[in-house]
Design a protein around this nucleic acid. Structure first.
Length: 729
DNA sequence: CGGTCGGCAGTTTTT
DNA sequence: CTGCCGACCG
């Protein structure tokens, strides 16, 4: 082999990366620290296997967790190889399971047109099942049952695997699980966890099929391995057993999804299950300053359960980490906003700035502050496109037109817009469907034929049947976007949402229009080898990809998101707000040591997002659920060596060394006292450019750190940084 | 059928 | 303090 031609595969790799990439086909566990170039290793490894080891692209399977990660990997493989994927499978666990089940629906015991239930659909169905079992909804909340069922499935457990041993709770949950499973089977529906478990069972129950895929996928690569659950791991073990190469890439220190079934133990277990596996550590970091890495290393070192890794960089020390002790959450937001304003002033792009918080509720105050200062921002999280009610309604019409025997979709639209089919009628249909083991659609027809349903309800049902017939007629031969548009209009959905009042209604209509665009875009790059029709593909697409987080905003804006969402991203300037015991680590994680370690990993993830500058903040007083609470400084901050931290204290008392203890600010509020070094006096009237006229109530600190409290006529009482407030007497 | 009121709970998120 | 859900009423 002429190695000159292949130098591009290894040239910009460090030793550890090269070890991982350029090995002959083997089993490897790559422990990739934050910012150590793991995607690069995965992509180069694939290219190496193909270019050097002469592996067929057809024999390569690469698995990720999110569609975004899969798309990125596909793109990078293509640009590195300069060719299309040529039969390579690169996708999410769920996407691949879906593909398998579509191809082998009979062996998997599914109807050809099985539908995927999202967690919303699942919740409705479980609620229904609990009702049908005559259980008290108060005592057996659907939410709880949903969590029970999903976590059992994630562990690979069926109802028959659950031993209740006389435990009423377990026995009841198991019964709900069993009844739910029966309902799913009858409706030809499977939920997300089931997708994975079914695919696993498919292989377990059909050794011939398993063998086929084992022969095909000689090379297996897994991203974010620390996030795999028991079923996904079992899947990999089955498939990877006999392959030529297997590479799992992950970071035990970044395992933050234990609460949803991810088993960090899989990383440890791997070397037991594959005794010949090598472990490669990627510890050189290409993202952050040495200060930031040292802080991250120091924090994560407090965890017991880890394989051990220490990030290092050839880069410079960088700035110290700033720690701001805010008076309350408004002051915190004000400080962050002000820092952002200054950073932008120095020329930093807004999209290079991120504000990270533990829980979504923290975003509101930050938003208000940014809004006031006119700084554009973008919030991650919140509802995704395909999860919006109006979109789900429209998709339900598409679903029913595709196959009317899909109960979840039919239930959703049978009386939407309202057409006189009430709960009682629906209950009759459900009972019939259950008794005769048929779909709702069949139940509807047979009930009408057998005249089981009386006058008014019957004519309403008949009207619905006619509507569906009309719609089916109307969309004959139409393109996917046209079909979507016809359904939205002729079903009455458009009219229905147009008659809603309020700002929301307008957005809903816009979203429906956007859905037509999405359909058009989907049809453009629809792959006819995956689904028989564009419609079938679009339905699967909608349930497997909840939709990008509204990418519409192209304007350069500051990024707000939770610490969880930030995983995998990087920003030159990062703010971690709410660094308080009870908030972060969260109250609910304080009891169990295992949960606390996961919180600490979350802190590690947060810190390692920062490239150049990291600013942390905490509030002495915070309003939580309408109450004022005082939190101590987060232990995660205290675990950072104080030499790496520059504390910004309210009192402006710069004489003290960099100790972390933040003394309560000294408050001066006696009338007539002059604010140090200024003309202003407590009690006097002042004018603020934005908030208008107010009375100066108090001040604290001196010099550049002086803050004043002003009671505004219209805006309430605020603390402002004197140096930026631009007050007029 | 749709609107309003009272009670209650209140992390993290992808598929 | 919110926001959601269920109950109740017109």
């Amino acid at each position: 082999m002429n190695t000159d031609d292949l130098s591009y595969l290894l040239n910009d790799l460090n030793d550890a990366q090269r070890q991982a990439v350029a090995a002959p086909p083997d089993r490897q566990r790559v422990l990739a620290g934050a910012g150590s170039g793991k995607t690069r290793v995965l992509v180069h490894r694939i290219a190496w296997l193909i270019q050097v080891e002469q592996a067929s692209p057809y024999s390569v399977l690469a698995v990720t967790f999110t569609n975004k990660a899969a798309a990125e990997m596909r793109g990078r493989i293509q640009s590195l190889l300069g060719q299309h994927l040529q039969g390579m499978w690169v996708g999410t666990f769920h996407g691949l399971a879906h593909r398998l089940l579509r191809a082998h629906w009979q062996e998997a015991g599914l109807p050809e047109h099985f539908q995927i239930l999202d967690s919303d659909d699942q919740h409705r169905l479980i609620r229904r099942v609990i009702k049908d079992l005559n259980l008290d909804e108060q005592r057996w909340p659907p939410k709880q049952a949903q969590i029970f069922i999903n976590s059992r499935k994630d562990e690979g457990l069926r109802p028959q695997n659950i031993q209740a041993n006389g435990d009423l709770f377990l026995a009841t949950q198991r019964n709900i699980y069993a009844a739910y499973e029966a309902a799913c089977q009858r409706a030809g529906a499977i939920d997300f966890s089931e997708l994975l478990l079914r695919a696993l069972d498919l292989w377990r129950n059909h050794p011939g099929l398993l063998e086929h895929y084992q022969r095909r996928f000689r090379h297996l690569l897994v991203d974010e391995f620390q996030d795999t659950n028991a079923v996904q791991y079992a899947w990999l073990r089955l498939l990877g057993q006999s392959g030529d190469s297997l590479m799992v890439v992950g970071d035990d220190d970044q395992s933050i999804y234990g609460w949803r079934g991810a088993k960090i133990q899989n990383i440890f277990q791997f070397c037991t299950d594959f005794p010949d596996a090598r472990t490669v550590r990627l510890e050189q970091n290409y993202r952050s300053s040495a200060t930031i890495l040292n802080a991250a290393n120091a924090v994560i070192a407090h965890n017991q359960e880890r394989l051990g890794k220490e990030l290092w960089t050839e880069g410079s020390q960088g700035e110290p980490i700033a720690l701001y002790a805010a008076f309350n959450e408004y002051d915190e937001a004000r400080y962050v906003t002000e820092q952002i304003r200054q950073a932008i002033g120095r020329g930093l792009a807004r999209q290079d700035i991120a504000i990270l918080y533990r829980s979504n509720a923290q975003s509101r105050v930050l938003e208000e502050s940014l809004l006031r200062e006119g700084i554009p921002y973008r919030i991650y999280g919140g509802q995704r496109f395909f999860e919006r009610a109006e979109i789900k309604n429209a998709m339900a019409y598409l679903c029913v037109i595709h196959n009317p025997h899909q109960d979840a979709a039919l239930e959703r639209i049978i009386n939407l817009p309202t057409r006189g089919i009430g709960d009682k009628t629906l209950d009759q249909l459900r009972d019939y469907a259950r008794a005769h083991q048929v779909s709702l659609w069949t139940a509807l027809h047979q009930s009408l034929e057998r005249a089981l349903i009386s006058g008014r309800a019957a004519s309403a049902l008949l009207g619905f049947v006619q509507l569906l017939e009309e719609l089916t007629q109307a969309v004959q031969g139409a393109s996917l976007p046209r079909l979507t548009q016809i359904l939205i209009e002729r079903s009455g959905l458009w009219e229905y949402h147009r008659n809603e009042k309020g700002e929301k209604a307008r957005t809903r209509l816009e979203n429906l229009e956007e859905l037509v665009n999405a359909a058009a875009a989907f049809e453009q790059d629809w792959d006819s080898s995956e689904t028989p029709t564009p419609l079938a593909g679009f339905l699967a697409h909608a349930s497997l990809e909840s939709g990008e987080q509204q990418a519409a905003e192209h304007e350069d804006s500051v990024q707000l998101m939770t610490l969880h969402t930030a995983k995998g991203l990087e920003f030159p300037l990062v703010f971690m707000v709410g660094m308080e015991e009870g908030l972060f680590p969260h109250q609910m994680s304080l009891e169990e040591p295992g949960r606390l370690e996961e919180e600490r990993r979350l802190a590690y993830v947060g810190i390692t997002r920062a490239m150049q500058r990291l600013v942390m903040s905490h509030a002495e007083v915070r309003h939580l659920y309408g109450k004022e609470v005082r939190h101590a400084l987060s232990r995660f901050v205290r675990e950072i060596p104080s030499a790496l931290i520059h504390s910004i204290r309210l009192s402006g008392n710069s004489g003290r060394a960099s100790g972390l203890a933040t003394s309560a600010p000294r408050l001066s509020e006696s009338k007539g006292t002059a604010v140090a070094g200024t003309e202003l006096k407590v009690g006097q009237l002042v004018r603020h450019a934005l908030f208008g006229v107010g009375v100066l109530q108090a001040f604290e600190g001196s010099g550049a750190h002086t803050r004043v409290q002003i009671k505004f006529d219209t805006e309430g009482t605020k603390w402002l940084m004197l140096s930026h407030a631009k007050l007029e007497s």
